[in-house]
Design a protein around this nucleic acid. Structure first.
Lengths: 351, 351
DNA sequence: TTAGTTTGAACAAACGTTTGTGCAATGCTT
DNA sequence: AAGCATTGCACAAACGTTTGTTCAAACTAA
């Protein structure tokens, strides 16, 4: 027999629990129960358990998780769909979700919708096929129809960043209205009267809330709120650039601009530079979404920050809660505080 | 009968192809073959195919992908493990990989190793259990032992960014040596003689290549290469900060510093600022890993750029090649060009 | 009409787990 | 020594697909 049993097999050489069972003269059942630590419940002797465990350790066997998923009807996987994983705002959220997920035994499969509604819908469908246990989505945000069925089926789902008023789904976002109020008041407090706003995607919750906060603050502070000073229709750098250009040419009296995203701010900065103007000497600027590197800018940016890490961990916790409690879960809507971080991009205008 | 068949069932109400078959009075086999577009091969009539397809469309059925994966022994999923998904360098790579993967019918599951070797190893193991078809890993990088078995088993695997000389695995990275040479020559060409280097994790391929490029260029250009001017042991912001502080205090004669990562540069900048010095007036700076926002810095940073998108797409293509060609695959080692992007963080020193 | 061919679909095994239940063998009690 | 409780493990079905093969019905040709 040449001691065949002593041949060393490296790595995961397609061993499965059936082969383990055969090699050890045990039943598949027993092996399975040892692996899943059910030895107590099913009275597997300590001796047998050790034999199995040693064998697995020596041969470095990784039991087939797919089969387990099929049998258990649970994949221990969640889907994460974001509009742009390369945007530090979303990648920071992704990081905290991944961390939280892993610490709770879940995997996350990543989908980048590229801010495209169609693609987003496709990703949702694909992830359903994959039988993810739940979804965390930073939706593109204009249209809730993709998610209606998911929500009405009570499928575990949490929106982050943007959400839908008309949909009774869980979400975690920031108190965007209050954030905008804070920023606008700060500008007014520093003497600014002609304040423009570079907005993001029209019709998204995030955007509406911020724009409303901005407009209503202007009015409550006794200034005129001029819709013409609100421009833009995307959270992107290019949109920020283009509209900053238009805005500053059209209304030279503008002394401050409120940017509704980090990318928009980058675009605005590019436009301002190109026009030969300076921040904050010529134009003051406040933006949403704080980034660590903002402090190193020519003029370190004053920002309204989102608590990305908290958004991520809360979102996962809510999702997990939904997954485990199933039908009995009641939707959670969470709005996190937005601290104003003062740096040097806002000039004080004397009266 | 109350026309029960007309009850509208919304969404994926746990329909599977068995129930479809039963509802339609067909066999599971037939339904499966329609779904997988094998109607030609198995001669399913167009009429039958249409009936099945219509039924699926109406009821919005998503066939169970898990069962398919089990049967097919292929998950159409790859694992992506990076040290820090919140680092724009890695998130950009992640984006291009996700894109490329989706366009080829693959999903990517995300793992953040948090620059921790232990965690990285665990992630690899977990992903093996999940039966990913392949792995793309930006390894922490000090120790190749985690991957030895994977490579010797010829498991589809591509390293990005960092890799291991001693391991015959595929990788996609940048020509780090040449990049460092370019940067160092640029500094010397601008009159700098005392050039320090803030390095990343010691013992990683990326770091060694860059440090060697730096040191050897100093010598080839007739300057003294001083090992004491090379400090640091991590690609992180905090490491950059700490070592910049030490370095600048210890050697006040330094006129330029070469940072081996974007995060290190951020840390160095913080230290320089704290010491009351200015870039480039007091200290010139070049860093690896270009970021779009570098142009807006107090002193727009001159950088040695990596082609993140190309790294990602190439890595996936190589991986796919390995997956489909199986045993017959021959390893690919790819080093992408690193363009030097000149901005304003390097001062010209007169002789 | 008969034999041969083509068409359209079904049977059943397999992928690798988990788990309710059954059943010897052993231990304990009196 | 007999009866009962406990211990330790195995049987077999189920999860939802895919696919080689079989087979009846319909068509074709002579």
């Amino acid at each position: 027999m040449f001691h065949l049993s002593r041949v060393v097999i490296l790595g995961n050489s397609s061993y499965n629990i059936q082969k383990i069972a055969k090699s050890l003269g045990l039943s598949v059942t027993t092996v399975s129960r040892v692996i899943s630590n059910q030895t107590e419940k099913y009275r597997i002797s300590a001796k047998t358990a050790k034999i199995v465990r040693d064998f697995i350790a020596i041969h470095q066997i990784e039991p087939n998780e797919i089969a387990r998923q099929l049998r258990m009807k649970s994949t221990k996987t969640i889907g994460l769909i974001v509009p742009d994983i390369a945007n530090p705002f979303f990648s920071e959220i992704a990081r905290s979700i991944e961390n939280e997920a892993r610490n709770n035994g879940y995997f996350v499969i990543l989908g980048d919708s590229n801010d495209d509604q169609k693609l987003e819908e496709e990703l949702v469908s694909l992830m359903q096929k994959r039988r993810v246990d739940g979804l965390i989505i930073a939706p593109v945000g204009k249209d809730s129809k993709t998610f209606e069925q998911l929500v009405s089926r009570n499928f575990p789902l949490v929106f982050v960043d943007r959400y839908f008023e008309e949909l009774d789904g869980s979400y975690v976002s920031s108190s965007n209205y209050e954030g905008a109020v804070k920023a606008t008041k700060f500008l007014i407090g520093n003497g600014h009267r002609k304040i423009a706003c570079l907005q993001g995607l029209h019709g998204t919750s995030t955007n509406s809330n911020r724009v409303n906060g901005y407009l209503e603050t202007l009015e409550s502070e006794g200034l005129i709120s001029d819709r013409n000073l609100v421009k833009g229709d995307s959270y992107s750098e290019s949109d920020g650039y283009l509209n900053a250009l238009i805005l500053l040419k059209e209304f030279p009296q503008i002394t401050a601009v409120l940017c509704l995203s980090n990318l928009i701010a980058l675009g605005a900065l590019r436009a301002i530079k190109e026009l030969g103007k300076k921040v904050p000497e010529d134009i003051s600027l406040i933006t949403f979404d704080d980034q660590p590197y903002f402090q190193f800018f020519q003029s370190p940016l004053t920002t309204v920050a989102q608590q990305m890490t908290s958004i991520g961990t809360s979102a996962f916790q809510i999702l997990l809660d939904h997954i485990v409690s199933g039908e009995g879960f009641s939707k959670q809507k969470l709005l996190l505080d937005m601290p104003l971080i003062e740096r040097e991009s806002v000039r004080i205008i004397g009266e």
